[in-house]
């Protein structure tokens, strides 16, 4: 009998613990901010040696010359080197940036330019590039140019050059390219980069700070 009473008391305790856990989890779900609670620091990776915006003039999707320094002067400029046939990194990176970009308040959004430089100019026609970028945000700038110019620009900002990897068994080639988005501040210098794996909550946290020249 006393064993039964002990067992029942243990079960009552377990039920009480269960109830407390359920309530605790519910409260935690309401109280934890989506950004994980960190504030006041950038979530991108700080670059040890800040790099200036490259001196690069390419062609935009309208066929017009686009001088990166002149056209983006005074803006927070997010530059990404990738290609539209990319199966993983590029569409995910751009989709996450695009999702947050559309939700920014105009005061922040109007001070940011997103520039996507194609590392596969042969297959990324202006039409294809424009149509692909429009999936994410119609304001995103798409640029094309020769791989020599692009590699030269990449070397000035200390990023690895473009590598063409032939496809196996007749499949399309893969293009090796930097997977990080570089954030050039309004002063034209990049102090922080965003590697693949950066999440929407990170962008939402950092972009307003970067616009302020954080």
């Amino acid at each position: 009998m006393s064993g039964d009473r002990g067992a029942r008391a243990r079960i009552r305790r377990l039920r009480a613990i269960g109830l407390v856990m359920l309530v605790g989890i519910s409260v935690a779900a309401c109280g934890v901010p989506a950004d994980g609670g960190r504030r006041g620091e950038l979530r991108g990776w700080v670059i040890d040696t800040p790099v200036p915006k490259p001196d690069l003039t390419l062609t935009d999707t309208n066929g017009e010359a686009f001088d990166l320094r002149a056209e983006t002067e005074g803006y927070l400029t997010l530059v990404f080197f990738g290609y539209t046939y990319c199966p993983d990194v590029c569409p995910v990176h751009m989709a996450n940036l695009g999702a947050v970009f559309g939700d920014l308040i105009p005061e922040v959004r109007d001070r940011i330019k997103v520039v996507f430089v194609s590392t596969d100019p042969e297959r990324d026609t202006p039409e294809r590039l424009r149509s692909w970028l429009d999936n994410f945000d119609r304001s995103f700038v798409g640029l094309r140019g020769s791989l020599e110019d692009i590699n030269a620009a990449l070397s000035t900002i200390l990023l690895p050059g473009v590598a063409v990897i032939p496809g196996e068994h007749g499949s399309e080639p893969l293009i090796g390219h930097p997977s990080a988005i570089l954030a050039f501040g309004p002063d034209g210098t990049a102090r922080v980069r965003y590697p693949f794996g950066v999440r929407q909550s990170d962008w939402a946290h950092d972009l307003p700070l970067l616009v302020q020249g954080f």
């Binding site: 989506a34 950004d35 199966p87 993983d88 569409p91 995910v92 996450n96 947050v100 939700d103 693949f196 794996g197 999440r199 929407q200 909550s201 939402a204």
Partner: peptide, 13 residues
């Protein structure tokens, strides 16, 4: 406001 699961947020198409 944002995706809560990183595996789905960072998943390729």
């Amino acid at each position: 406001q944002h995706p809560i699961y990183s595996i789905y947020e960072l998943a390729p198409p």
